[in-house]
Design a binder for these strands. Structure first.
Length: 776
DNA sequence: CAGTGAGCGAGCTTCCGCTTGACTT
């Protein structure tokens, strides 16, 4: 009989811990949650105290059976899931699903994976905290109720297949509102005056860059100022020195790792997590989904040693960081290298780069402050009362800067603090050139994925394990797109004073260029408008923070979980019913104008398949005509002329092989149709310009490509083909695809062998899991 | 992925938070 069975959440953790515990312990993993609400129905019994109806998750059936068998023959089961709300619930679900006995079960927790921490945990077991489990249950039920009542309402009122939820809808709101802010932003310009001075000291020539403290809104005033400096002398009248320091940033959490990897390595949030997972699984870093900035004592000791050895003792300053994040649950350590004596690891290029970032951030966090000296120099102008200032910064002691400096999201990095030449008070300066350059104010920056995560974390919305999936969800639903956008050229005025002569010119710059930024789509904007209008409370930025307070009360045993849910659900559900009944279709319909040919109205609106234009009124006798918007068109910017162009399809071309060709625009872009087959246009083709000749070219090019990807065909069975596709060779038969078993050379297949493959159910195409409903 | 859009109505879609692989037709 087995003595001890320990169950943790992650298999990599299980492996490490098993090494610490010795042969009397077997350590297994639950792979996260093991039970959940059924996803095909609400699974919350509203009439009976909102009782959730749990079931073992389909992908956990096998695992639970295994664990159950193991637990039966074990003297003591130790539930060692994380010490937070979700972790406590996982332990309780395991207890229930495995049918454990209280006297044979213990609950233990630890925040760091070290031998002492585990042994201490084993010596201090406790029982499952049912209040904490109730708080998780409240969280789970609330999210289900919100998601599963709001989403169907969107299907009815806006468009099928949409979704809404406590987290994703706020993420979309942030992006939509930022876009509106940008749209309403009015840029203003002012003239910034900079001067380059020279002087000689001890036979050496020096330069000094300075800026006028004041900016001029009007071009005329800037010009006046430059003129006023003609023939002027310049003198340094004050030098002010101030000591300052910089401290290192805290070790990485999930959110800060995503931000830095985005800023410094250009990683998407999903890529960062994928690479971090690989590093974690190969034992190189600690757990990557965490909101804690805490390092274990062991880690701090290791860091101290590494810093002392490489940089010397005066670079060491050990620190304990505390989180400032709202709602942080700190079940894990910060993200750090497992072994701090390893500055480099083997692995893919991405793994190496991400590890390097984690290594440096961790080491720097335990290093001394950088000591600086900031200098401000004041320069008087003899011909007027205005003053220039020059700023400089000297690093007296580099400290942690030797290793790592946190990146910034600030795109207005105009101010540069450079080294100053040897200056002294009273020094006379010569003006080399003075420039007045028109500078424009900038709108707030659009969100990158990582910047959105940062904002969500500030609002306490979402968790480390959901940041990346949420960003992917809002893109999958078509609410948000991640795109590059080209900028526009803008002119600005430059005036220069050199050798007492004024010259003026107009220069141009590219502005508004965006790389990998999040933009709202028409659907995202419309859904946000709908939710703002009818469910302001749910997408309020403080909604999560407020319900979190109540979850905390439940966790402390001060409130019943289902009472909390009931208080929320009453008004919420009433609003759902009201809106279902009283609100009309929410299509964002807008009249664009009238068709000059027929005089009928042309609208733009969201239809069953997305944004479209409509020719003719919905309630008119004659059925209106519809056409979907192209990818680069939006409901807000489409013009009447563009709408009319969309109605010019399908357009008939000449014949080819005695069959008619047409050109049209469909769901997947423009295409040529011939003999009831479809041929997609190239990106460079404009469907408005396609004529017979080009259409034939496109058809022939497609046929050629098909021929090249055909491995074998058979005269006896024209429906069967061996083809080479995206994922390698496969068999196509009667519009269904079959995989070829491993180790079979597709070139050698004859018809008989193919039919054998087709008939073998193992090779049958995978069907989407659909629940069979009993027929009535 | 497959080239639609009213209305009729069946049947489908959907949440957040914990975890990894499987493996694309």
């Amino acid at each position: 009989m087995l003595k001890n069975l320990v169950i943790v959440e992650s298999p990599a953790k299980a492996k490490t811990i098993e090494g610490f515990l010795g042969k009397d312990f077997v350590v297994k993993s639950s792979y996260g949650h093991v039970r959940d609400l059924n996803k095909t129905q609400l699974s919350v019994d509203i009439e009976n105290g909102f009782m959730p109806q749990y079931e073992v998750s389909p992908d956990k059936k096998k695992l639970i059976a295994e664990l159950k068998k193991l637990a039966k023959d074990t003297e003591m089961v130790w539930l060692a899931s994380d010490e937070d709300r979700e972790g406590e619930a996982i332990s309780w679900h395991l207890f229930e699903a495995l049918g454990l006995k209280e006297d044979k079960t213990k609950r233990i927790v630890f925040h760091e994976i070290t031998k002492t921490a585990i042994q201490k945990a084993i010596e201090n077991p406790r029982e499952i905290d049912h209040n904490l489990v109730s708080a998780q249950q409240a969280r789970r039920v609330l999210d289900r109720l919100v998601g599963y009542e709001l989403s169907p309402l969107l299907w009815k009122k806006v468009k099928p297949g949409l979704s809404a939820g406590r987290v994703q809808s706020v993420a979309v709101r942030l992006i939509v509102e930022r876009e509106e802010e940008i749209k309403n932003f009015e840029s203003s310009s002012a003239f910034r005056i900079t001067a380059q001075f020279t002087f000689e000291k001890d036979g050496q020539k020096h330069q000094l860059q300075a800026e006028l403290a004041e900016r001029f809104e009007k071009e005329e005033k800037a010009r006046e100022f430059l003129y006023s400096c003609v023939g002027a002398g310049y003198t340094i009248t004050a030098i002010e020195k101030k000591p300052s320091k910089k401290s290192p940033a805290a070790p990485f959490t999930t959110s800060t790792l995503q931000q830095e990897a985005s800023r410094k390595l250009g990683f998407s949030v999903a890529n960062t997590m994928r690479v971090a997972q690989q590093l974690y699984e190969s034992g190189k870093i600690t757990y990557m989904r965490t909101d804690s900035v805490n390092l274990s004592n062991l880690a701090i000791t290791m860091a101290k040693e590494a810093i002392t050895e490489t940089y010397g003792e005066k670079y060491v300053k050990t620190r304990n960081y505390t989180t400032k994040t709202k709602g942080a649950q700190e079940a894990h350590e910060a993200i750090r290298p497992t072994y701090l004596d390893q500055p480099e690891v083997k692995g893919s290029a991405d793994e190496k780069r991400l590890y390097d970032l984690i290594y440096k951030r961790t080491i720097a966090s335990q290093m001394a402050d950088a000591k600086l000296e900031k200098t401000q120099v004041t320069i008087d102008v003899s011909t007027n009362k205005k003053q220039f200032t020059a700023k400089g910064e000297v690093i007296l002691f580099d400290g942690f800067l030797k290793v790592y400096m946190e990146g910034t999201d600030d795109e207005n990095g105009e101010e540069s603090n450079h080294l100053l030449p040897p200056i002294s008070k009273g020094q006379q300066l010569n003006l080399n050139e003075m420039i007045a350059q028109e500078r424009f104010t900038r709108h707030a920056a659009r969100y990158t994925e990582a910047a959105l995560v940062k904002k969500m974390e500030e609002l306490g919305i979402g968790r480390p394990s959901t940041y990346a999936p949420t960003i992917s969800t809002v893109q999958k639903r078509g609410y948000v797109v991640k795109e590059d956008r080209e900028g526009t050229v803008r002119n600005y005025k430059v005036m220069s004073l050199k050798k007492d002569k004024l010259s003026e010119k107009t220069a141009s710059e590219n502005t508004g260029f965006e790389k990998s930024k999040l933009f709202p789509t028409d659907i995202g904007t419309l859904v946000n408008k709908f939710l703002c209008q009818y469910f302001e409370g749910i997408i309020d930025y403080n909604f999560t923070a407020n319900v979190e307070k109540e979850f905390d009360e439940i966790a402390m045993g001060q409130k019943e979980w289902n009472l909390m849910i009931s208080e929320f659900y009453g008004p919420f559900h009433k609003k759902i019913e009201d809106t279902t009944e009283n609100a009309g279709k929410f299509s964002g319909e807008k009249l664009l104008g009238t068709d000059p040919e027929s005089g009928k109205n042309i609208f733009v609106k969201v239809g069953r398949y997305g944004p479209m234009v409509q020719l003719g009124d919905t309630d008119s006798e004659e059925k209106p005509k519809f056409a979907g918007l192209r990818k680069n068109q939006t409901m807000e910017t489409i013009t009447l002329d563009e709408a009319l162009d969309l109605f010019s399809f399908p357009r008939t071309l000449g014949n080819y092989e005695d069959k008619e060709m047409t050109v049209a625009i469909g769901r997947f872009g423009p295409y040529v149709k011939h003999d009831s087959k479809f041929f997609s246009l190239q990106k460079t083709d404009d469907p408005a310009d396609i004529e017979t000749e080009r259409a034939i070219e496109i058809i022939e090019a497609k046929r050629e490509k098909d021929r090249n990807s055909t491995i074998a065909t058979f005269d006896k069975e024209p429906d069967l083909k061996v083809l080479d596709g995206r994922y390698g060779p496969y068999i196509s038969y009667k519009k269904k695809n079959y995989k070829i078993p491993k180790g079979t050379d597709p070139e050698t297949l004859d018809l008989e062998a193919c039919m054998k493959i087709v008939d073998n159910p193992d090779n049958a195409p995978k069907k989407r899991f659909t629940r069979k409903k009993s027929s009535k």
